[in-house]
Amino acid sequence: MGDRLQGYRRVLEAREPDTSAERLGVLALDEIRPVRLWTARNPATPPTALAGLAEDEDDTVRWNALLNPNLPDAALRSLAQREEAESGGRSFIVRCLVVHHPNASAELRDQLVAAGACECPRPCGRYAFESRR
């Protein structure tokens, strides 16, 4: 029971916006999935930790890292390339969010638009980031 309680405490710590960036970096490596998931969602998680979470083995952790507006461009590019490779270029679920991510570089946006990741003004991923701020 002690291990379970410790895991729960780490989840609460990962959810807290006042948790230090250094501590969030440690929590990003936690063995317990919900700890990593809430660390990915925390707006105070540093970009380096988010980049690691964007490569997590768990797709829900990766998704939550993608929705964090602090995810760096290199991690966004990696997520876009991963989706393209896994779907054979047919799926744009992740790339539609990447193209409108506030940290996506102009070069990455141009590449994704050319690939068909966005056909604005139809509703697309840009709204996901506007609501989280």
Rank of each mutant, 00 (worst) to 15 (best):
V99G: 07
Q81Y: 04
W38H: 11
G52P: 11
A21K: 15
E119T: 07
W38V: 03
D58Y: 09
P121K: 01
P17C: 08
E83Q: 08
V61R: 06
T39H: 05
A75N: 02
Y8C: 04
N42D: 08
R36I: 05
I32P: 00
S105R: 01
G88I: 11
L53G: 14
A51K: 07
N103P: 02
S105G: 06
Y8F: 11
G7D: 13
L12A: 13
P17D: 09
A21M: 13
R90L: 15
E83G: 06
L71Y: 08
L66G: 06
R90F: 09
L24R: 03
R126E: 02
R90G: 10
V61Q: 03
E55N: 14
P47L: 10
A74E: 12
R9V: 06
P46V: 12
V98I: 05
R10G: 00
L5N: 13
H100T: 14
P102V: 08
D59E: 15
V94W: 05
R109E: 02
R10F: 04
D59R: 14
M1A: 11
E86C: 12
V61F: 03
C124P: 00
A74F: 03
G52R: 15
R82V: 11
G89V: 12
R36S: 09
E22A: 12
E130V: 10
A117G: 10
A114S: 07
Q6H: 08
D56K: 11
S131H: 01
D73Y: 03
D58I: 10
L67V: 08
G52V: 13
R95D: 05
N42T: 08
P72V: 05
L27I: 00
A74T: 09
N42F: 06
D18C: 08
T19A: 07
S20C: 08
G25R: 00
E57Q: 13
L66Q: 05
T19H: 04
P72F: 05
L108H: 04
Y127E: 00
D58L: 04
P34L: 03
T39C: 09
R33Y: 01
T39N: 10
L5W: 12
V26H: 02
E130S: 05
P72W: 04
S78L: 02
A14K: 06
Y127V: 00
S87I: 10
E57I: 13
R4C: 08
D59N: 12
L66P: 04
P102M: 07
H100A: 15
D56E: 13
D56I: 07
